[in-house]
Design a protein around this nucleic acid. Structure first.
Lengths: 158, 158, 158, 158
DNA sequence: TTTT
DNA sequence: TTTT
């Protein structure tokens, strides 16, 4: 069975990075993908989807270092859903894309000015070793297994 | 920007098909993708994700005809999120994969017995013409534009 | 069955555009994807693959207009192979990626200078109607295609 | 940059497995993907593409064990091209899909008979550690890869 | 919440 | 809620 998500979009804010008690690092960020279409009136409209993304370990470390608000990235991951209850006892559902690979795309800086363009010296982040499945409490958790692809990238001219 | 989901998994039930007032047909179904992994104790565990899938128009018509409970399908689509309020005024969020293409995989029937195996005579369903954007009421809606690829498949021996 | 290729890379030159006798427009271009890796000596090496890409009809028209030498694009297509004989009667094989969708990425211009940055006003090009499979002579022919992949995971709570 | 191929198709024959002098195991096999389309006369035609696939190391070992002639598999990899000269000094080009992940799909056996259905106990094969890029002779060499696609849409309420 |  |  296959469960794969591929996104090319921008971060809405800096990644939120945390280190769990077990030492595992996690980074979360919102990522926007937009598409344009013409409405019935022939006007161009833009539709934006905001995706919650989570990356672990090495990917999280790199996220902290390389991902910024506004960064345009290529991301692969899987679609996960968790159920939980809020303090009022309501059933809630959270959907997250658990990233297994991402790549910063060369961004077009606003002309002039010192580009904060981050040349992807970082030869792409991939998750090869899945984090340990912590069967412990509070864990809405979710695991690995099917494993993934690899690949990567770069940028500059010719 | 790219927003793509690829799943290979099974339907949990028959698709629910409806025809809207404007004549557009919609089909919804839950789709499971599972992956196995070894837990710390070395035991095999299975983790299943249930995805809400929606397909429109021609894809919906074909879903009604070809997709069954238990069908193994390959599906491509995009990830969409809608916000709404329940009757208690709570903010809710729904995530759906809006399918743009799917393909029934040849399924392994339980040995013996007349297989309800549906040989994919159906040369794959693709959505080429996006449904009209109805900006009207009640519409948690969501639109087209970036459009997609097409392709397909078959099964038989060699 | 699924046959899908996804590339993010740069054009090595302007697309070569032609119009066949039947009026169909075709565009061809080479596209490079590079990846970096460390060799045994620990040195960073870059490995570049050059892919022959072909797009038809509306995609070809748009290619002529929007794709330039050096353009960074996201491309989806399918992998096709053709056999033919050169004038010496040798059997030759040509592999091409027949594009069904592409998207120009905002490119990072070399700092300074007037950016030849082509703001993707072009809301993406897709091929909905595949060109007719012309089994005849000289025909670079071919139809459509689709699909994608797997990945993996992580675990803990939040 | 992204270079990703995704195929769902069947093996034309048993994989050819070899072990190189350096101990690395390689498996090669042809994989067919077919698609149906209507020709101008309205007749259904089937177009089959045969892809050369190579997998390394653990993937090769698993190929030897699990992949059979006729196996239906989901495969991810990257597209590579090599140039070489035949004994007549002609320049030749070989294109191969270097697999980084594959998954055997449950196959529909011809009814009756003991199904050679191979229940994917095999929790999928992935290549995390790419084989060393051996720029040397005889080396069908190469590393890993990734990525995927776009799609589209629908609209109305529910 | 990004970006053009 | 599927499936093995």
């Amino acid at each position: 069975m296959i469960n794969k998500v591929t996104l090319v979009g921008r971060l809405g804010a800096e990644p939120e990075v945390r280190t769990l008690e077990n030492g595992a690092m996690v980074a979360k960020f919102g990522m926007a993908t937009s598409e344009s279409y013409r409405d019935k009136a022939g006007e161009w409209q833009e539709q934006t989807e905001w995706h919650d993304v989570v990356v672990w370990r090495a990917l999280a470390e790199r996220a902290q270092e390389y991902l910024k608000k506004g960064s345009l990235i290529y991301l692969e991951g899987k679609l996960t859903h968790r159920k939980w209850q809020d303090k009022d006892g309501n059933n809630r559902k959270t959907t997250e894309v658990v990233g297994s690979y991402y790549r910063v795309m060369p961004t077009a800086p606003r002309s002039g000015g010192s580009s904060n363009y981050m040349p992807s010296e970082e030869p792409a982040a991939t998750m090869s070793t899945p984090p340990p499945k912590s069967p412990t409490a509070a864990s809405p958790a979710n695991p690995p297994s099917t494993a993934a692809p690899a690949d990567d990238s770069e940028d500059l001219p010719f």
